[in-house]
Design a binder for these strands. Structure first.
Lengths: 164, 164
DNA sequence: ATAACTGCAAAACATTTGCATACAG
DNA sequence: CTGTATGCAAATGTTTTGCAGTTAT
């Protein structure tokens, strides 16, 4: 699921094109550059990552345009924004991708994606009980992975000691 | 659940006192003022709310101390931090309070708390599958409440029209 | 006494805004 | 052509930091 097939990218661009046309907004090369950049990776990138990646490829964009375009891409559901307890927001491509939640290792910051169908039932029940129309949810689980290359492995008690 | 009984407040202060003593950190009046202030309300306040409330009561604290103390209170699990998709973090008292998640109305920003036992099962299953030690989770559901005093009621389509 | 804590103001950081210029429709 | 979008730089809002002075232990 890291690189998307060309026909999917075509669909994504078509969605964006239609969205802009409907709203009487311009189809600028900068906007499509941001769209392509965020769809080029499965990473959960922040706005500055995108800006730097675009610059490195020689694309001429400003941070303001990156933020502006991300806003548009969120409005047409091609991108979702996450807050993983950091200062900056992270963005992720959303088209033709499974609905998932996130598991974050607080030692190595590695991110894992998971899906549990019970979430859908919980969402429906909450909507029912509180008389809400629920659009979306954000579920993040925070903990420590047990992998060898994680700073917490095998039992890095030093981390806690060093912190005090 | 808005005002806590005195004996609970005593317990909370005792927890903080013990925590500070164990770490060789000082018990300053400013730190206890912040603790009391956040326990005085069930609200999900931001750091500046606390700073302003303390100032209004005539307590002499600085923003830096508010942030510093919140950090300590999170370390001893007396306070939890939330990110509800806004720019600033919000803080909530955590001692002797039920484990809950949040439902947010995107029209009026009203916040509701709910609890579903299935979340615990989901958390345990994810921990098992990914070989993680999971400490906590954060689940926010975003939607629109259907209350009369909400700007979205009864079907404020104007909001969407005005935005375009 | 002395190391930790405080307030203040400045710095840092992510994001937004204002405005003159550029360009898509 | 015309109004929308852009880049730049300055402004904003939140949080952190440095440091001289203060205070709990």
């Amino acid at each position: 699921m890291s690189t998307l097939p060309q026909h999917t990218l075509d669909e994504v661009e078509e969605v964006f094109r239609t969205f802009l046309k409907e709203r009487g907004q311009r189809q600028t090369p900068e906007r499509f550059a941001v769209l392509e950049e965020i769809y080029a990776t499965p990473d959960h990138v922040d706005a500055d990552d995108l800006y730097i990646r675009l610059k490195q490829e020689g694309t001429r964009v400003s941070r303001a345009t990156v933020y502006n375009t991300l806003e548009l891409l969120m409005k047409c559901d091609l991108v979702v924004r996450h807050q993983f307890g950091e200062s900056q927001a992270r963005y992720e491509r959303a088209y033709s991708y499974w609905q998932h939640d996130h598991l974050i290792c607080m030692d190595c910051n590695e991110l894992f994606e998971f899906c549990d169908p019970r979430l859908q039932s919980v969402q429906e029940m909450v909507a029912e009980i509180y008389d809400f129309e629920i659009d979306c949810h954000s579920l993040n689980m925070y903990g420590r992975c047990q992998r060898e290359n994680c700073p917490n492995w095998p039992e890095a008690e030093e981390a806690e000691a060093a912190e005090a």
